[in-house]
Design a protein around this nucleic acid. Structure first.
Lengths: 311, 311
DNA sequence: GAGGTCATTTTGTCCTGGTCAGAACTCTAA
DNA sequence: TTAGAGTTCTGACCAGGACAAAATGACCTC
């Protein structure tokens, strides 16, 4: 995988198709098909007739991808310019303005005041408690960071910084929960292709604080391995998180596939942006439409469990 | 990305080419070229003439990939059977037998005794101290877990479990270090394509315990963003980890690319399996051949830094 | 207005069968 | 033992076609 970026004498940076695939998440096939169908992107060619994408085309592709992750379709986006793309994002968003605390945390991140940023996150966690922190602050942060990036106010490394620190904070909070032994036992993971870890950590936090026993398998566990893991670890519930970056249909396919191989005594819980757009859950899958539902869903599961035990 | 696995009436599981790419890390192009050139893999076809790989071919491909990650070449591997492949791995390895403590930790992992496993890791950390723990225990565990997987003794979800718990332990250990403000300041990350997080955490642990100021950017930061981050965070050293899973040449290309965009005052440190096979570092890159070298390299850097300050 | 069905359009993945550059290896000479 | 030259190996990329599945929209029913 020789990701090549050449630096032209005029200072322009050019990316080959592999680099563009890596940076946008659009497959090489898709890039070639768009060029054929829509006339965009329109890369230069090197001596060997291979595609070389200029920086601005890469940037536009990343914006398009970001909007597609939020449900837009490529043909509607491909001929818009950067500004039009940025506007599309904020319009129709469920969030209008970040709350003051979130705005302050964002400000510290953008100023690269790492200590202050970390401190503000921790302070907010202490103030709100883990569940409100996760449902309010983190959810807003996720949205506004995406938005800031789209408007060019925030670099990729800022996102990495955010993700890394938030992970540390959430993991730490989770570790500090006793995690009593009682049923139901949860296995948390994502299907292959789903790289976002934060969503899963948010769910784990919501569960742990209620005293649920959780085992996290990390990201991208192949379906047969989720089954093997659930059996080996005697899980009662497998919880999966699907970010908006993964197509709804892929998420549903993964759920059905898992349901087919998992014994019916083991429940499946699923949630996340990818499922927000779809009506009803596949047979045998509990769909969680928001993090707030988790505590009551857990209470239900415990009741059911007790009823089963009694019977 | 419709990763399809069909379950045939006879109970056999079949994977399409996208699923095989995802599970093996071999590109679709490579899979097709191998079929054309070597006659393996030799997938079935569906109604639409698309490839369907049976389970055993997928397993063999994963073993081949694992050995290629350790420097073997495909043509030497492609016609061997599972047993011959497994033998190749242990032969010529630098490790002959896991130390007792490592064997015990492995045993607990394989028995899915999560509490015991976590406890044993923590105990070993306390006993050895962070640096010996990272250099000895973790390094051995990484090797033997790969080996156990190759011999079919260990499932993917066991690896995920291991990775998740080790991450928690290392992140926690790192957070507990004060991380004094003094120079040199380190920025830690990996280049795109390098997904392994453990290696980076091991480096961070080695540095933090010596009181170095570290900022971790997580994995797969695009090169221009590494530069932006290093400047914004005023790093003195950018440290990169390259696992054996990434081709040596890709690693070197990444290093050269970064060196080209980074001001020469900022040092680059690089290490990991991918660089073990190559003679000398690119100009302007400090190559760390093992984790043990880190403390002395840090001491050197501090001396240099003091000398510069004095001048 | 919610929900269902069907045709149409959109979209991305897969296919074949090439070409080619650069890495890895082998051989030879110093 | 090293250095250089020649050879083989390897995987990335290309074009352009086919096709299935998802999304959309039109129309109908409850």
């Amino acid at each position: 995988m020789p990701y090549i970026t050449t630096h032209e004498p005029n200072g322009e940076t050019l990316y080959n198709i592999a680099a563009v695939e890596r940076d946008t998440g659009l497959s090489k096939d898709t890039l070639r098909v768009w060029e054929r169908r829509y006339g965009f992107p329109q890369p230069l060619r090197d001596n060997n007739d291979e595609r070389l994408y200029p920086q601005d085309q890469l940037d536009k592709l990343r914006r398009i991808r970001h909007l597609m992750d939020h449900g837009q379709r490529p043909s509607k986006l491909i001929h818009l310019n950067a500004e039009e793309l940025a506007q599309l994002m904020t319009r129709g968003a469920e969030y209008r303005e970040p709350p003051a605390a979130v705005a302050e945390i964002l400000r510290l991140l953008l100023a690269h005041d790492i200590e202050g940023f970390r401190g503000a996150l921790l302070q907010q966690l202490m103030k709100q408690g883990l569940q409100r922190f996760v449902c309010d602050t983190v959810a807003h942060l996720n949205f506004w960071i995406g938005d800031a990036w789209l408007h060019g106010k925030l670099a990729i490394f800022d996102e990495h910084l955010y993700s890394e620190h938030l992970q540390n904070i959430l993991r730490n909070a989770i570790l500090e929960q006793p995690g009593r032994g009682g049923a139901p036992r949860f296995l948390l993971t994502t299907v292959p292709g789903e790289k976002h870890r934060i969503g899963l950590l948010m769910v784990e936090a919501m569960l742990c604080i209620e005293g649920a026993a959780c085992v996290a398998l990390g990201n991208e566990t192949p379906i047969p391995d989720i089954r093997d893991g659930a059996l080996a670890l005697r899980a009662d519930v497998v919880a999966l998180s699907f970010s908006a970056a993964i197509p709804t249909q892929t998420a549903l396919a993964g759920l059905q596939e898992l349901r087919a191989v998992l014994p019916k005594e083991i429940a499946i819980w699923a949630g996340g942006g990818a499922l927000g757009r779809c009506r009803k859950a596949p047979e045998g899958v509990t769909m969680l439409r928001s993090l707030e539902e988790i505590p009551s869903a857990l209470a239900n599961a415990r009741d059911t469990n007790r009823a089963l035990q009694a019977a």
